[in-house]
Design a protein around this nucleic acid. Structure first.
Lengths: 117, 117
DNA sequence: CATATCCATTGACAGATGTCTTTTCAATCG
DNA sequence: CGATTGAAAAGACATCTGTCAATGGATATG
């Protein structure tokens, strides 16, 4: 599938003249874009993306001590990544005694997912 | 919709004992995760996300001189963002005389989109 | 050729990021 | 209580990121 390029053979414009037709730009998009970019940014690290992947496939069943050995980073580093995901509103955790059980917050990815579609 | 938490009331384990059941962890995911994380990272900036949004809605019709006034950043900064998107394999451009026409590469977002779903 | 225009690149710089080691905190066990 | 354990936080440090001003390169006009 190729993109339908509409490359009008343009000529140099006079000073101050627009070189292209203006693109309609919905102002509402700005806040949406910020929210979605925050989520995308949080997913923009292989470890965090895999963390979300594992958590989604094992909703609510995974505690940190089980996540750590899956990655080649130290426990504090993984904790740091989990905090990033928490700050982005993608995951949350529930503590039970010594253990912390992480899960993906339902709906946290739907806005970005819908936009990407 | 709530996550189905299976919080077994665990007790302190003996030294060396696993505190959790091991999670099956497909090794194939590693390369996939890296690719998708790269795409997500590129989308992890509001300006870049909006750039992709505009380009998707105006496939192949948008030249840089038209994109610049849409954002409150300098032309070199926008050029930098476009390069990031190019490096991530999300967009490409076609030059025609003085102008550069950007477009979203078809299928560039499908892997991430499918995973997010 | 000289000049103007579009766009990319370079260099600089403050701030964010990923990582580790060390520390702290809360909870459990003996 | 004292010791141990799971997990978060703090501190340090090299690297990456977003931004701008200045520059460069290619193309068009005259």
């Amino acid at each position: 599938m190729l993109v339908d390029l509409e490359l009008a053979p343009k000529h140099k414009r006079a000073a101050g003249e627009r070189c292209c037709e203006p693109v309609a730009y919905p102002d509402v998009e700005r806040a949406d874009a910020s929210r979605m970019a925050d989520v995308a940014k949080a997913l923009g690290d292989p470890i965090r993306l895999q963390l979300v992947d594992v958590l989604r496939k094992n909703a609510g069943k995974v505690c940190v001590c089980e996540l750590v050995p899956l990655f080649d980073v130290s426990q504090p580093t993984l904790s740091h990544h989990l905090k990033k995901l928490r700050d982005a509103g993608i995951v949350d955790c529930e503590r039970r005694g010594l253990w912390a059980y992480y899960y993906v917050i339902p709906g946290a990815l739907t806005e970005l997912s819908a936009w990407l579609e």
